[in-house]
């Protein structure tokens, strides 16, 4: 086996097939819409940088996680709590008294988020359809059954840790871990982003309430949406790092002009 292939079974530069036109178009449309979604997603999270589990969560309730990315959670700047009933532990209400200092860029943030989501979803559906029809998905993205044996997986994983990273070819055939990563992004993470996103829509959940049951509630869906985002950002970092490590200019050229 040549040294370059030791990385993950990827073919040497001379034997790689490059990227087809529709793959390249989809790649960049998805890349730009994903970056827009990531940026606006952070802007939206800054308006309420707290995550919860279940249907409900707000400033008057404990959070699962809090992020120091804005000064929007200021429990001391709420007015005095009033209760709705005299029962001990009854739910309360309080007025938020720092409205003029409140960070909220959700007007354009939300609209841009959904505009980018439309582009990603339509491109993603077109990609999945074309990929299935042309056989790209079956041939190049999904691992063979035999490749999923624990021993094979372990060997590939160990090779990644021990072998030096060397110039690799662009486009299929892909290595085993590479195929698993790409298919997880395309068929697990991105669909999960879409479904958890839809679960945060009051009109959609009125029509399709099973979404709330599927994810354990509105705030659970928001939390899963966030962790899916972190997984995708992790993928982006590793993806770009490997593109740089295996020949940045050639890889970039291959994703722009095909080879």
């Amino acid at each position: 086996m040549p040294a370059a292939a030791a990385l993950d079974g990827a073919t040497p530069v001379s034997q790689s097939l490059g990227h087809r036109g529709w793959v390249r178009s989809c790649h960049w449309a998805i890349a730009f819409s994903f970056l827009t979604l990531a940026f606006t997603g952070i802007v939206i999270l800054m308006a309420h940088p707290r995550l919860y589990w279940g249907e409900v969560g707000n400033d008057l309730m404990p959070a699962l996680l809090e992020f120091p990315i804005s000064n929007n959670h200021r429990p001391d700047d709420y007015g005095p709590a009033t209760t709705f009933t005299e029962v001990p532990g009854a739910p309360i209400s309080a007025t938020r008294d720092y409205e003029d200092e409140f960070f909220n860029q959700n007007s354009w943030g939300r609209s841009l988020h959904f505009l980018a989501a439309w582009i990603l979803v339509t491109t993603g559906l077109g990609y999945a359809f074309t990929g299935l029809v042309t056989g790209h998905v079956g041939r190049n993205l999904l691992p063979r059954i035999g490749e999923l044996a624990p021993r094979v997986l372990w060997n590939d994983f160990r090779n990644h840790l021990t072998s030096p990273i060397e110039p690799a070819g662009s486009g299929p055939p892909y290595g085993l871990l590479q195929k698993l990563t790409y298919s997880s992004v395309v068929f697990i993470a991105l669909p999960l982003m879409l479904l958890t996103g839809l679960t945060m829509s009051p009109a959609v959940t009125a029509a399709w309430p099973f979404l709330l049951d599927l994810f354990g509630g509105y705030q659970s869906a928001r939390t899963i949406h966030f962790f899916c985002f972190t997984a995708l950002i992790l993928f982006l970092v590793v993806h770009v790092a490997l593109v740089i490590a295996t020949g940045f200019r050639r890889q970039l050229r291959a994703m722009v002009v095909g080879h």
């Binding site: 939206i44 308006a47 309420h48 249907e55 707000n58």
Partner: peptide, 11 residues
């Protein structure tokens, strides 16, 4: 359930 655009909710 009240769903605020900021991200919080309440029943």
């Amino acid at each position: 359930r009240h769903a605020c655009e900021e991200g919080w909710s309440a029943i």
